[in-house]
Design a protein around this nucleic acid. Structure first.
Lengths: 349, 349
DNA sequence: GTGAAAGCGCTAACAG
DNA sequence: CTGTTAGCGCTTTCAC
């Protein structure tokens, strides 16, 4: 069976609605779009017959006249979806009510693939493109400037003068460090990723603002293994820390595991705080990890809102918008009563 | 600046190509689509001017006449993207060359949201819908039967008579167990998830086919915690196992951690094998985890191919297609020379 | 071989 | 208040 035929056969057009309602196509269109002038009675009648007939307008045809496809493209190089998925969820949340759908395109770090996807999107008349990625100090391998459609950059670097959204690394790091001091820790260290990352430098700076200029900052890989090694180093020297702020949750997990293996109690002897709130990691550490959440979903929501405004021709101030991070308390810091952990480990096969 | 205006102004239409090439629109269309009859010279000239002008056909307009949008919808309830992302990557790989883009819609387990998204897809004239999810024995909370467009189910349950793709749990489990015997293990146990999961029952059955009918199967949650508890139980009784096949990588990680804490060497004393090949987990265990990969990307590729065939009206045999799993050797089983681990832990911030 | 004309389903002037 | 008319950009008979 050829599906196309069925589709064509079954789909009812505005023409049918008009005929059944006894009006012209133009009137039907106006009635359904709440435009034009007519008696409430007519409008209602048209709407009712449309509903009765199960009429759904053909978005393609509408796009052709309105020059608006109610479609946006999401471009990402974050294969794992670690950052993209929450962002995507937020975008969808912001757009689904407006009837806007999103094309998701993973382009790895392949410029050619990127160009192919961007072209495909443009051909499909997307109303805008949202670019996202896995780090905020790198651009995607495609040039999105000078496109005929608006572009918003979320959690990836955009060119000068673009509309860009990032989370507030400094504030997040400050809050993390302040939380350690709030639970009474005084000998703080920051174990984090490579300092080639802008976010690493920003967070380290914020850490030192609170913890003091000589507070140690240890750089390594974004891995559990580095967490282990950092603990080995710190405990090899004298005067080990009583509060550790980790650059991401994986490092934090390595740190916590290493401390347990060493017989150091978390959070009794040492408080550990992570960054990212990657639930699958944060909820599985023992004890569950207190960490910083970058609010990526909200970032996505904002990106969705902005791209819509741009698509509608509304003016949007260019520049970098910074969204706050939030502290998620679990049990690895002790101190304040831990919030009931509403985050479940979601893992099924 | 209103982007729409720019778009309209800059975009060049087939009309422009025709004019510049000195032919009619009809001829231009035929030339570009390699249809109709004309001298090679004309065809070439049209193609060249199109290229020179940077002509890109408007997919909307084309869709309107051809009743084909070169667009498919991907519906999922797998929030974490644990399974959806690899599937999506495969789909994209299969479709990008054909100029097909995919709408990604996460619908959680919300029937209403599902309906909204399906309707939006239908309005946008998708050529087909691929449904995917987080377990193969549950349906998505939307009824996709009787739609005017073709539907393919990948890694989620479809109705009777649908085109469905799943990975071969039995073969995967068999291979895992055989691998344990191949490295010389004889006292095997299977530590897995809740037996309410069809895949759990299938895998347990396959495990016992190889390991013997009395080989123990322990059911629990899909969590590291359960891995710990299972080890505690197994080692509390006498005669602990020397080979453990875990239902997923998280359980395996819990098992391996528990064994290390207990001073039991992996893989010297006990071999452990997981299921899923979730790299972020499998590569971080100590030692790195040998596990079963469900080939989800290939599954996605196949889903993409099938939906295309259906969209083109080609006949596709309905029924459940089973794709093989593959063994990924790392170091948690010992025995055979471990393959060089080409899988990196990809984790950046 | 090539082009004029009709039309995909819908919206938007402009008349009546 | 409502309907007629003209497209949106492209493909596709069907004449020439």
């Amino acid at each position: 069976m050829r599906h196309a035929d069925v589709a064509k056969a079954e789909r009812i057009r505005i023409y049918d609605v008009a005929r059944v309602a006894g009006v012209s196509v133009a009137t039907a269109s106006k009635a359904l779009n709440d435009t034009g002038r007519m008696t409430e009675a007519t409008r209602l009648r048209v709407k009712q017959t449309a509903a009765a007939l199960g009429f759904r307008p053909n978005a393609m045809a509408r796009a052709l006249t309105q020059n608006r496809s109610f479609t946006v493209g999401l471009l990402t190089n974050d294969t794992y979806g670690r950052f993209t998925l929450p962002v995507m969820a937020g975008i969808n949340e912001a757009l689904v009510d407006q009837g806007v759908s999103v094309f998701l395109c993973g382009i790895e770090d392949d410029a050619e693939l990127g160009a192919v996807h961007v072209n495909a999107m443009l051909d499909k008349q997307v109303d805008g493109i949202i670019a996202t990625g896995k780090r905020i100090d790198r651009q995607l391998p495609v040039d999105l400037s000078g496109l005929a459609v608006p572009v918003v950059y979320a959690f990836t670097q955009g060119p000068e003068g673009a509309v860009t959204l990032v989370s507030d690394d400094a504030q997040g790091a400050r809050d993390a460090t302040l939380h350690l001091t709030a639970v009474g820790r005084r000998r703080l260290v920051h174990v984090t990723g490579p300092d080639s990352f802008a976010s690493v430098r920003t967070r380290a700076g914020a850490f030192r603002e609170v913890a003091g200029d000589e507070a140690p900052v240890l750089h390594g890989a974004w891995s559990e293994a580095w967490g282990h090694e950092a603990v080995a180093r710190l405990w090899a020297e004298g005067n080990p820390p009583d509060g550790i702020f980790c650059g991401n949750d994986q490092i934090a997990r390595g740190v916590i595991d290493a401390l347990r293996e060493r017989g150091v109690s978390v959070p009794d002897a040492v408080s550990v705080i992570g960054f990212d709130n990657w639930e699958i990691v944060a909820a599985a550490t023992r004890p569950p990890l207190t960490t910083i959440d970058m609010n990526l979903k909200e970032l996505g929501r904002e990106a969705g809102r902005l791209i819509l405004e741009l698509a509608e021709g509304k003016p949007v101030e260019p520049g970098i918008r910074t969204l706050p991070c939030k502290l998620v308390m679990r049990q690895s810091c002790g101190g304040a009563t831990p919030v009931a952990d509403k985050l479940e480990v979601h893992q099924e096969v």
